[in-house]
Design a protein around this nucleic acid. Sequence first.
DNA 1: TATGAATACCTAAATAAATTAGGTATAGTG
DNA 2: CACTATACCTAATTTATTTAGGTATTCATA
Lengths: 110, 110
Amino acid sequence: MNKSSLYKGLLEPIIIQLLNTNGKMYGYEITQRVKEITAGELLITEGALYPLLHKLEAEGLLEVEIENIGNRIRKYYLLTKNGKKHSSLAIDEMKKLITTLSLFLNPKTV
Amino acid sequence: MNKSSLYKGLLEPIIIQLLNTNGKMYGYEITQRVKEITAGELLITEGALYPLLHKLEAEGLLEVEIENIGNRIRKYYLLTKNGKKHSSLAIDEMKKLITTLSLFLNPKTV
DNA sequence: TATGAATACCTAAATAAATTAGGTATAGTG
DNA sequence: CACTATACCTAATTTATTTAGGTATTCATA
């Protein structure tokens, strides 16, 4: 997330939507996938990401599966049952945001 | 701006775009027009709006025309020459945001 | 073979942008 | 005459992020 960012507040729904389509992902993977998907437009900082993942886990929207890669751990996050319900809301909110912004970009000149 | 808002950071480009299409507007008018345009989806609080208008004026993007309505003043804001240049950037950023969000909502399943 | 980059996790202080909760005052409505 | 709408404003607080660290493993390369 760069510049004076318009993406504020969008990190949570973006992560939820990513997990919704990709099943399970770990933190570092999320930062890389987002960079790749957006061609570098959106760069998620780890300082924002990890605390958010922990918050969503505490709220019961995400659960963790720990995997050992050699001597290193990897924490996969996936949506809980509750998180899946929540994900449709997050998606609706993003769609609504797009619709609302479009109202300003394409003003009705009736 | 309500709920745990996705609109954070969007207030500035929205105002700039509004002034770009409407010529000049005053603060209270902006709150009402936005409510109307978005059918109540986006409610701008005055505590966010007025400090932002002052900031944009201080940065030279907006200028003020004061009008007296009876015994009451009304401060119309309009884009300066510099503000107009800036407005195309703001619009591009909003369009880019929409494009980027769409990447997550409509993932490429190649 | 050691040095740096990439992978992978993390936290705390500072900053930015909003909300919340006030304030003043005039004009219009029931 | 009271209440709502219009119209401006600010300060303290909250929220979400950036910035700037930290630890440790794995891989490439000079």
